[in-house]
Simulated assay, not measured.
Amino acid sequence: MQEAKAAAASRKKLEAVSKAQAHANAAAYQQYQSAVQLVQQAKYDKAITALEKLLPSAPPELVERCRMYIATCRRQIATTSLEFDTPEERYDYAIAQLNQGFYEEAREQLMAVAGDVPQADYVFYGLAVLDSITGRSQDSLSHLSRAIELNPRNRLQARSDGDFQNMVDDPRFTELLYPEIP
């Protein structure tokens, strides 16, 4: 009889702990959602604060996501304070971002250089590569066409550039790179 009472008390205790844990997890997910909204609104400082506050009590499945968002926010804060002395420096930074997979940052920087130096064929070539990698085939074709118009040697370079792998089956791409073939 004593054992049955102890077992029942133990079950009740486990149920209470389980309910408390479920409630804490629900609250953590709600805090996480609020922090992600801050990131989406570009309120990076507030998002970092919210995410760091959440980290100690976050369920294991949220911990890595929180850390990733914290790193993203810090990177965004750092990039907004970047200053470039020349368009070439900005271009180099954009290509580094592209190579690291930060496509939106790369696009933003390349577009800024294109605005500053509209005759820079290498910028349009970089945009064409970025568009190809990100599946924006029409934009890739437009930018590559502009790059070739500014510097016909870009046609030869694009023929052997692996970054255009997504475009090789597109007849418009073939037509742009091999206009002499009927």
Score class of each variant (00 low, 15 high):
Gly115Gln: 10
Ala58Ser: 03
Lys5Phe: 05
Ala50Met: 02
Ala96His: 09
Asp170Gln: 03
Tyr44Leu: 02
Leu127Cys: 01
Asp131Val: 07
Ala6Asp: 11
Asp161Pro: 04
Glu104Arg: 08
Gln31Trp: 00
Leu62Arg: 05
Ala78Cys: 05
Tyr178Gly: 03
Ser18Asn: 12
Arg155Phe: 02
Gln76Cys: 05
Gln76Leu: 00
Ala24Leu: 13
Ala71Cys: 09
Val36Asn: 04
Pro60Gln: 11
Glu83Ser: 13
Gln31Ala: 12
Thr79Glu: 11
Leu51Cys: 04
Tyr122Lys: 14
Pro152Gln: 01
Lys46Thr: 06
Tyr69Ser: 04
Asn166Trp: 08
Ser137Tyr: 10
Leu156Ser: 14
Phe164Met: 10
Thr80Ile: 05
Gly162Ile: 09
Gly126Phe: 01
Ala147Arg: 03
Glu88Tyr: 09
Tyr178Ile: 10
Ser145Gly: 15
Asp163Glu: 14
Leu55Asn: 10
Leu82Met: 13
Asp121Gln: 01
Lys12Pro: 00
Ala47Gln: 08
Ala6His: 02
Phe124Arg: 03
Asp45Tyr: 07
Lys13Phe: 09
Glu175Val: 07
Ala24Val: 07
Gln37Ala: 11
Ile48Val: 15
Gln2Phe: 05
Leu110Thr: 14
Ser142Trp: 13
Val36Thr: 08
Pro59Gln: 01
Gln76Lys: 09
Ala106Leu: 06
Pro56Ser: 06
Glu15Phe: 09
Glu15Trp: 06
Ala58Cys: 05
Ala78Asn: 09
Lys53Gly: 10
Ala94Asp: 07
Ala50Pro: 00
Ser145Ile: 08
Pro152His: 04
Leu127Ile: 10
Ala35Ile: 09
Asp139Glu: 08
Gly101Asp: 03
Tyr103Ile: 04
Arg172Asn: 15
Ala106Met: 07
Arg90Thr: 08
Ala4Asp: 11
Gln21Ala: 11
His23Lys: 14
Asp139Ile: 04
Asp131Gly: 11
Asn151Leu: 06
Leu51Ile: 09
Gln119Lys: 12
Ala27Cys: 04
Ala16Gln: 06
Ala128Lys: 01
Gln109Leu: 07
Ser160Val: 11
Ala47Asp: 15
Glu180His: 07
Ser140Glu: 13
Leu150Ala: 08
Glu89Gly: 09
Glu175Phe: 10
Thr174Tyr: 14
Phe173Gln: 07
Thr134Leu: 06
Phe124Ala: 00
Glu105Lys: 01
Phe124Thr: 03
Ser34Asp: 12
Leu82Trp: 06
Ala112Met: 10
Ala8Trp: 04
Leu14Asn: 02
Phe124Gly: 06
Gln33Phe: 05
Asp121Met: 05
Gly126Asn: 00
Asp161His: 13
Gln37Thr: 02
Leu130His: 07
Gly101Asn: 05
Tyr93Cys: 06
Ala27Gln: 10
Ala147Ile: 00
Leu62Pro: 03
Ile70Tyr: 13
Asn166Gln: 14
Val129Arg: 14
Pro60Ile: 12
Ile133Cys: 03
Gln30Asp: 13
Ser10Gln: 12
Pro59Arg: 00
Ala24Thr: 12
Thr86Asp: 03
Gly135Ser: 09
Asp45Thr: 14
Ala4Ser: 08
Glu89His: 08
Ser142Asp: 15
Asp85Gly: 14
His23Tyr: 09
Ser18Trp: 12
Arg146Tyr: 11
Glu149Thr: 08
Gln33Asn: 10
Gln30Val: 01
Ala35Arg: 00
